[in-house]
Design a protein around this nucleic acid. Structure first.
Lengths: 169, 169
DNA sequence: TCCTTGATAGTCCAGAGTAGACGGTTAAAC
DNA sequence: GTTTAACCGTCTACTCTGGACTATCAAGGA
């Protein structure tokens, strides 16, 4: 509740995950990210340790540290944190996707389309299959936002497979 | 040709652009990026000043500085730079796209799909139109890689328009 | 001729994010 | 009990970001 800090997408990821989880350690956050969210917004594991600390110092999270052993830190969202998350969610954004595709970059600069495509097709196929499997595994309890994000992910992976497959011919 | 440095995507963007341009100042690179490449891999203008300096110090670029006035620095690719670029281009990559979409992130965490979609549809439509216009403006001299990257961009923008339009209903 | 204005061009810095090495802790199996 | 593998956390060097700030130059008007 002291210094004002800039809230970045990373901040909202931490706030959003903690809001859903109730309370969690950085390690638990790391697992949640690895289980799915990481596909939509990659984040370094070290940040899941440093960012909560930063947010706690600014009053957005509460921190409880274990006494012995691993001395894990458990974080929870405070009222201020909840409010910041709400107002971020309520504000629609007109920002565009930031696309960073190493393969596309090479293609742009003149790499051989065919050999590039041959490397890209299988990984995109695999990703697509992974998404589709996640989709069939979702129950009625899955939040709408999570479901819709996956729909988007599937659409884009299909597009990639289409694109690279054509180049592979 | 002294210190070894890590070559990042930023490095290859600078090398690739300079290879195509022959020789250029950071400001000129900035304009090229703004004219198109920036859509595929965003890069901060300050980096177009610092990165060439870093590359020059490592021997990948030559540097010529104007004597008077603005003291512009003109950079060109050295043999070592050309070699590094070539071997990067020759190595296909299996890395996946890093997708960073602020709107999708909000959706994931429970933002209202409809109002989000209403903000997203117009900007994606505009981007799509911009890409299509670029496409029609391309001549026979346009490198294949540039043309193909645009094809990919169009495909993804269409996908975004499709996705958000459906949510806007 | 000098002045204003706007486009052109370059520098700087604090702080956020990345990549990955490294080191401790714990439970289970042998 | 000791080994082993999984679990968990910290650290550092470096890259990248966002944006403020300053300087240079060309053109047109007074």
């Amino acid at each position: 509740m002291s210094s004002e800090i800039r809230l970045t997408p990373t901040s909202f990821i931490v706030l959003g995950l903690l809001e859903a989880a109730g309370e969690a350690t950085p390690y638990e956050l790391k697992q949640v990210v690895a289980a799915g969210l990481g596909d939509f917004w990659s984040i370094q594991h070290a940040q899941l340790y440093s960012e909560p600390e930063r947010l706690a110092k600014a009053g957005y999270l509460s921190e409880r540290r274990e006494e012995g052993g691993r001395r894990r830190r458990h974080y929870g969202v405070t009222a201020a944190g909840r409010k910041a998350l709400r107002s971020w969610l309520e504000e629609p954004t007109a920002e565009l996707t930031e696309l960073r595709d190493p393969g596309l970059l090479k293609l742009f600069f003149g790499a051989d389309p065919k050999s590039l495509a041959e490397a890209q097709v299988p990984v995109h196929r695999r990703k697509l299959a992974e998404y589709e499997e996640l989709q069939t595994g979702m129950g009625a309890a899955t939040p709408a936002g999570v479901r819709l994000s996956l729909v988007s992910g599937v659409g884009h992976e299909r597009e990639w497979v289409r694109f690279w497959s054509k180049l592979a011919e």
